[in-house]
Nucleic acid binder design. Structure first.
Lengths: 357, 357
DNA sequence: TGCTGGCACTCGACTTGATAGAGTGCTAAA
DNA sequence: TTTAGCACTCTATCAAGTCGAGTGCCAGCA
């Protein structure tokens, strides 16, 4: 993607062109207006005349890095231009100490009763004045703490299970026969003593294995328990989900003030599907990842950028968080912001954490 | 509010004027354009010339029922005009059988595993193409089914309790001493045997009473149990909440395409406070209630109307549902729609229900 | 060879003026 | 009491004109 730099056209994309591109993007991000050659001549420290800059701009336009909305307007960065900018040109600013303090305050493990995910999302959106998004930690990496059954009418059983420290999940399963409360209690006891402390994926695997191989070894009660566990931890039970806050902040940006775009975007938010898929992709990479405009592949996000970072608990990636805003966002601030938030959240979610960083 | 009708100015607000107001509102609702005297003359069955109608319009304008955006535009209903219309003039249309079928399908008790509240909200928004809102049933009228404690680190205890048939709630409480799992189990057993089946409010009252009066009668374990119950069922534990769907539908309406208005509205939605307060007011009245524009008292809703109805389980009002849309909405359809949905939802939530209506 | 000043040109934003159409208020007549 | 007619008002729309920002290109200069 950055292949243009220094291959065939080294002489075109030299240091100076890159410097000008950088200045242009910075200027456009802060102003929102197409940047003309005169402004660029003043802004950059290169002491070049507007005429020279126009020549360079023409080259950058040929390379698809900038674009002119119309004949006599300045230049605006294209998606490729932004890409080059965030990949190699941007000079990230260290987080303002005010913001850092707020993040620390919000994301310390002290107060276990508040929902960290929610807090993180809110911090992201409030401090960046854009939309913040945080996925719930992946259940594969989540430990079963306790399970409990409660009988309902019509062969239905309410399964309640607690994961990690304090997250409560519940699901209704349909059983083939009616269980007495005592039987349910017994089943729960068996499952708790056997599987408590193990990860949900490993529990699921173990359950499947027992059903296939060890049936003769088990008594009826154990078999029932394992069967119910299978139903309870069935794949795709709790769909991965995310917490999104500050969507309304996005309504302030002029590039999103087009009602159709905005509607598409908000519909994408409420359907969740696309967003989840996008965030899933970010989970694979470590560190900060950025989707600019159409790069995401979802039309609804055409005029948005997404700056994400995965967050990890005990060196395992368990989720993703990020900021959604207009393509024209202050990447140099947002990138470190997302980075730090991800690290703090990971640390805060770590049960045996001392304050990190 | 409807006091103008037939008091001092009977001769002004006579049958004919009302008929014309009705026609005007209907026409404006369907067109969205200010209605002129000529159009009104054709639309109404009164066989009056435009000139006559202009005289009537001038009277209606004096009474504050209609309003001219500018000198040579037609008339538009004011809030008072809408009020009079929905209170006395509107002829509600019976629900289309297609919609009725869909409502019945969605809101029958058969499938207990899906969330009725969510379904109801979604039906409201999808079938009306506006936003649907449904409050969660009031907890005062909710029965405790089962309670369970789980110890966490640092004197914290995770309380899980199940209400009604299958709703699971959880809360973390801080205790003064550290309990062993066995002690917690014992406390849960005591509470389950004592309070299971009673409403949350009555449990709360009973707990308070025991703590104040019957302390000497109880052993230590019971006392601990009751203390924990008090913490768990503390007032304001689960804040009343609502499920809102189809907000994005509102972005299609021209009267809400002003970005500022829209932003205010969506911020009100995400803060929830104001909406909850508004819905609470509706809980007091039975049947369909309507807030038009500024009547709600919340600036964010200035250009919206809210058509609500409380819904009841076993003859007790437990919640409110409604539709939010632009002031210019098809009241004659929405009113019966909300009415029927409320009745169906109430019936569906009734544990021992046969299909109603 | 690369940079710069100059010049003609283009395009959008804004202003102005003219026109058509919808709808009103008022008055006088039926 | 209703109606027809008329003058008036206001909006929306279009065309024309102007201004300014910015470009592309060319010729000259270091």
């Amino acid at each position: 993607m950055v292949a243009e730099v220094g291959v065939g056209n080294t002489q075109v994309l030299n240091e100076r062109s890159l410097q000008l591109l950088k200045t242009l993007v910075e200027r456009y991000i802060s102003d929102g207006q197409p940047v003309g050659s005169r402004a660029l001549s003043k802004d950059s420290d290169l002491h070049l005349s507007p005429a020279t800059i126009r020549n360079v701009m023409a080259d950058l336009e040929d390379l698809g890095l900038v674009h002119s909305p119309h004949t006599s307007a300045g230049r605006v960065p294209t998606v490729s231009g932004y890409r080059l900018f965030v990949d190699t040109l941007v000079t990230v600013k260290p987080l303002e100490s005010k913001d850092l303090t707020l993040l620390h305050q919000g994301l310390t493990v002290s107060d276990g009763s508040s929902d960290m995910i929610e807090v993180a999302s809110r911090l992201l959106s409030e401090l960046t004045q854009m939309a913040g998004v945080v996925t719930l930690p992946k259940r594969e990496l989540v430990c079963l703490r306790h399970i409990e059954f409660l009988s309902l009418s019509n062969n239905r059983v309410l399964v309640i299970f607690v994961t990690n420290e304090q997250e409560v999940h519940n699901k209704i399963i349909h059983t083939s026969k009616i269980f007495s409360p005592a039987e349910l209690q017994q089943a729960a006891n068996y499952l708790n003593s056997t599987y408590s402390g193990r990860s949900l994926t490993s529990v699921r695997k173990a359950v499947l294995k027992e059903l296939q191989e060890d049936q003769e070894r088990m008594n009826n009660g154990m078999l029932d328990a394992v069967r119910m566990a299978q139903l309870a931890f069935d794949q795709g039970n709790d769909k991965d989900d995310y917490v999104l806050t500050g969507e309304t902040n996005l309504m302030g940006f002029s590039e999103l003030s087009n009602m159709d775009r905005l509607k598409n975007l908000f519909e994408a938010f409420s359907q969740k599907q696309g967003v989840i898929h996008l965030l899933d992709q970010c989970m694979k990479a470590e560190g900060v990842q950025i989707f600019i405009g159409e790069e995401s592949g979802y039309r609804a996000f055409d005029h948005c950028s997404l700056v994400t970072s995965s967050y990890s608990v005990s060196d395992e990636v368990v989720g993703v968080l990020g900021v959604i805003g207009p393509t024209r966002m202050a990447y140099e601030k947002i990138i470190p912001f997302v980075d730090v938030t991800a690290k703090l959240l990971g640390a805060a979610l770590n049960p045996k954490a001392t304050t990190p960083l």
